[in-house]
Design a protein around this nucleic acid. Structure first.
Length: 353
DNA sequence: AAGTCGGGGGA
DNA sequence: TCCCCAGACTT
């Protein structure tokens, strides 16, 4: 029996029942695939339901404003996915009359849709013969065939992509693609794979040579840098002052408290003496530290955040028109980012009137 | 080719 | 801690 045939048999007996598998609607598949980029199925699931509910068809998605989309995306991370989806939805309306394309060549031109997602949409919605290559596929193939070429090198990507397309079941591309990813997620797991009851136990190169835990090979990236954020909570009557982040940095276009960043860790007494602080506040500002220093870990930077209450809003130098400010009831409806979101949850009683 | 973009879970 | 997750985009 061929590799593909064994895989399909395994899938028929062990495949997971996931909500986006019960449709061939390319729009719904696109929603699920973008949400699942670098995201575990369990984490993405509630977001998938929310987006389908809110935007059942692509024209609804295209019509929505970015604020609303970002708010729905809040907490999921990699927010450029949400912004790119909005652009893509508008393109589908403009270029395809609102009928979401299924062809690989069409969908890969949409922002936020790369090789993987285009292959997924094309194969699941119209059975176009394009092999998906995601983290699961890298792991299954590298172990099965004993390939130690790094999966994040240019050569490695090319090698695995060609191999994946050679192995693809051209008669059932969609089913095969689902099968190999499920096999990677359920059976050929990153840690503690279930080798002793694996259907490929006698053919798997890694199992035979005891290399399972050394494959796939991945080159290490740069270690993450440290950043020091100082957030100021400023109340005016029933309002909390919030600032919208710009682009070119983490949390683009999302809301947070007005803040300044220092190149090193700085205690509050020293912070007040800095030039940056002086540009924000008059010397008579009353500053109180709120909560403990908080470390927020991202994939490539460690954010060391401190929060301060400014008790006299009149000490604010900067024009408020440069920021957005809101009634506190509205705070929950803004696309805050995770760090601010969790701070608000913990300290609501301290800062809400 | 390397860097950037989040957050959460498992071991 | 470290690594990974149905990756894509920019430099």
């Amino acid at each position: 029996m061929s590799f593909a045939a064994k895989l399909l048999k395994w899938y028929g007996e062990n495949g997971r029942d996931l909500p986006w598998r019960n449709t061939q609607d390319p729009y719904i598949i696109w929603l699920s695939e973008v949400i699942l980029q670098q995201t575990r199925v369990e984490q993405g699931m509630p977001y998938f339901y929310r987006f389908v509910e809110e935007f059942p068809i692509v024209t609804k998605f295209a019509e929505a404003d970015e604020e609303k989309i970002l708010r729905l995306w809040q907490g999921l991370g990699y927010y450029s996915r949400a912004r790119n989806m909005h652009k893509a939805a508008k393109m589908v309306v403009a270029a395809f009359g609102g009928r979401f394309p299924t062809a690989f060549a069409d969908v890969i031109r949409l922002p936020g849709v790369g090789e993987y997602t285009a292959a997924a949409i094309a194969s699941f919605s119209s059975n176009e013969a394009r092999a998906v290559v995601d983290g699961n596929v890298y792991r299954v193939l590298s172990r099965m065939f004993g390939i130690s070429r790094p999966i994040n090198s240019t050569q490695g990507k090319k090698l695995f992509s060609e191999l994946a397309n050679d192995l693809l079941d051209k008669q059932h591309p969609g089913l095969y693609n689902q099968a190999i990813m499920d096999f990677g997620a359920v059976q050929c797991k990153p840690k503690n794979p279930l080798c002793d009851q694996c259907i490929f136990r006698f053919e798997c190169a890694a199992f035979r040579e005891g290399l399972t835990e050394h494959l796939p090979v991945k080159m290490k990236g740069k270690e993450s840098r440290n950043r020091y954020f100082h957030y100021f909570i400023i109340r005016e009557e029933e309002q909390l002052l919030m600032a919208k982040r710009g682009g070119g940095d983490v949390w683009a276009n999302l809301y947070e408290f007005p803040m300044l960043e220092t190149p090193t860790a700085v205690e509050v007494d020293d912070l007040i003496g800095t030039e940056q602080f002086g540009a924000f506040f008059h010397p008579f500002a009353v500053v109180e530290t709120i909560g403990p220093p908080t470390k927020h870990v991202l994939s490539h930077q460690n954010i060391h955040a401190r929060f301060y209450m400014i008790h006299n809003a009149s000490a604010l130098k900067v024009k408020k028109s440069e920021w957005n400010y809101f009634f506190w009831e509205k705070i929950d409806r803004l696309a805050k980012h995770k760090l601010i979101f969790s701070f608000l949850e913990r300290n609501k009683q301290l800062i809400i009137p």
